[in-house]
């Protein structure tokens, strides 16, 4: 019969799934420690790259075993009839959090994470550059104006907890200030040094 070639696959979303995704044991956590590390690395890489591709910010345990979820293409491979269980996804979430690639959101539960395909520090820089390049320094902006700007930006649809974290980081270097108001929070950006 000779060897079997594991192929990459273009998913309906246009994302190119790596050949490891067509490898049935990829969906079974490996007992040998070194193999497992390599497997974990590949899952983490796949999840983050897919999230970046589709601009997905959250991954939850309920995304497993569910058709029609945003994550279906990754967590299920119909072509080889393999899927990750909820428990396996929970383990992946733990790993993402332990590696600093995600954070539990909301805190104090382990079913759902906010993914850091960009770290909060990088988001802070993106946010600040955007404020500078669109001439928004020194004026008060609402979070809504950042999340749904008239011209779509890299920050469109950024979840509020992540936006807050990015602003917090800018606050520490005096490049932003939170303005609290009854109608919802706002922020003012400064050029900084």
């Amino acid at each position: 019969m000779g060897s079997r070639k594991l192929q990459t696959h273009i998913a309906p979303s246009g994302y190119k799934l790596p050949s490891i995704h067509a490898f049935p044991p990829f969906f079974c956590f490996q007992p040998a420690a070194k193999t497992r590390v390599s497997q974990d690395d590949q899952w983490v890489q796949l999840i983050l790259s897919y999230a970046r591709f589709r601009r997905l910010f959250t991954l939850t345990v309920d995304d497993a075993e569910k058709t029609g979820s945003d994550w279906e293409e990754v967590l299920i491979n119909e072509r080889i009839n393999r899927r990750l269980t909820k428990q396996q996804v929970r383990t992946l979430l733990q790993m993402l959090v332990a590696r600093g690639q995600a954070t539990y959101e909301p805190p104090r539960q382990d079913d759902s994470v906010l993914l850091y395909w960009r770290k909060p520090g990088e988001w802070a820089e993106v946010l600040h550059s955007w404020a500078v390049s669109t001439g928004q320094l020194n004026t008060i902006m609402t979070f809504y104006e950042i999340q749904a700007p008239s011209l779509p930006s890299e920050l469109s649809d950024i979840p509020t907890p992540l936006l807050k974290r990015a602003i917090d980081i800018l606050t520490k270097t005096n490049r932003a200030q939170i303005i609290e108001s009854g109608e919802g929070d706002g922020v003012r950006f400064f050029a900084g040094s």
Partner: peptide
């Protein structure tokens, strides 16, 4: 040896 992977869904 780590020369193979196991699959429990086959």
């Amino acid at each position: 040896d780590g020369s193979c992977w196991i699959d429990d869904q086959d």
